[in-house]
Design a protein around this nucleic acid. Sequence first.
DNA 1: TATCGTTATATCCGGCAGGACATAACGGCA
DNA 2: TGCCGTTATGTCCTGCCGGATATAACGATA
Lengths: 116, 116
Amino acid sequence: MATRTVELELKPRVMLGEVRAMGPGKADLLELIEETGSISAAAKRMKMSYRRAWTLVEAMNGAFKTPLVEASTGGAGGGGARVSEAGKEVLALYRRMQAELEMVARQYLAGFQQRL
Amino acid sequence: MATRTVELELKPRVMLGEVRAMGPGKADLLELIEETGSISAAAKRMKMSYRRAWTLVEAMNGAFKTPLVEASTGGAGGGGARVSEAGKEVLALYRRMQAELEMVARQYLAGFQQRL
DNA sequence: TATCGTTATATCCGGCAGGACATAACGGCA
DNA sequence: TGCCGTTATGTCCTGCCGGATATAACGATA
């Protein structure tokens, strides 16, 4: 039978009161900024507007004690952005949590699957 | 220090392709329908429009092999709705998963907290 | 057969998240 | 000192989710 894909979508978000400090989108963005050294390049890869990427970065930096992304304007290449040590640590922590959550969820997949 | 509340928000969704078969909102609704025996009463308790509640029910019933909610119109009291056996089982499964996921997440809370 | 409360739908609207543009500002470097 | 690519913002627009509202259908019971 043509079984449509059944999957568990968990998008853990770290909330600081009402504001979303970290989530799947921000994590991906963080990763790409680290990789490209630029917010705009990272945005392009994620096919999101620079506007939005910048907004996400601001939200992260505003929420955490230490900025996760340090950006600079002008200069060689026009500027750029780098992920701070704190940023790398937070990203790693989030990824680990994500992986563990997915492992747990996977164990329930079959249970749902047979009813869908 | 006035520490704003830091929490992990995980809203696991069971996806059947693109459609959301089960999620936190639907689970709550299901629970309230079971409790009240009525979609509209459940909707009221959740402070959501009957329109939306009904839409959610339809989505669930459409996604699962066996309808999770069985509704009837007319008759004594105008009609009503009950949660099927399948519905109760799916709900229980979802709740168990949710609880386990929350336990895992909780272990990461402190890690984020100290950086927020 | 008239009543009543709930299910079942359609239609109209408002809020808001996010994309598309448009511009500054910035600071190495040729 | 002009060029360039990136960061930093503001503004407009649109799609969509969900609320509000309005009926119709329904069927046990008095």
